[in-house]
Amino acid sequence: MLELQNVGFRYGRGQDILREVSFRLQRGAFSFLTGPSGAGKTTLLRLLFLALRPTSGRIHLFGEDVTRLPRTALPPVRRRVGVVFQEFRLLDHLTTFDNVALPLRVQGQGPADYSRDVMDLLDWVGLKKQAHAYPPVLSGGEKQRAAIARAVIAKPELLLADEPTGNVDPVLARRLIHLFAELNRLGTTVLLATHDQGLFKQVRAPVLHLQDGTLRTL
């Protein structure tokens, strides 16, 4: 499903953000990615959802070498990956409903095709009543759930989440972790970047620890 071989990354001529990072996630795996702030977690996730290209090493995704994939070949790969951003990255001019439906819209589906699925998912994450609300009026937790709903609406094979519980209270954090576990049970491979060591107790999963740009498995 996902394999990194000696991946290194730096911005321009700056210092290395990631060094010789290698790991593999099997299909259907659930893993945590942890490490102190500035360790390179977000950079690593950005490499995985192909927003950045490594300066060295190779990345294999869905059995394909995506290290130097041409731009035109990126959209089909990205459609198989769901991403929950740390800062949510919801579009403020679209309603919660339209934000969640976005991955399906860009695939060419119309409201008649996706309305029911979107509403069911909004119901599942507890945002049915906020379907018509715009992101600026949502609370941090609601935005987080909307971002998660958008990441999973197209049933991605791989779900990457960057601090998905960073803005919510412990009760909601537990609910969200159960939501990820449920998605994983349904077949989605999940890699969850977090500081929150308390989450490791809720889901038994391998923990990848990133420190000073190098990775080790706990």
């Binding site: 959802f49 927003a51 731009r71 035109t72 990126l74 959209p75 089909p76 990205r78 459609r79 991403v83 990255r89 579009l91 001019h93 976005l102 991955p103 860009v106 695939q107 958008r150 197209a154």
Partner: peptide
């Protein structure tokens, strides 16, 4: 730019 970045990341093609 932010919107375009998000559209790219959810799999939108340049033509879309």
């Amino acid at each position: 730019r932010q919107t375009v970045d998000v559209l790219h990341l959810v799999g939108a093609e340049d033509a879309y």
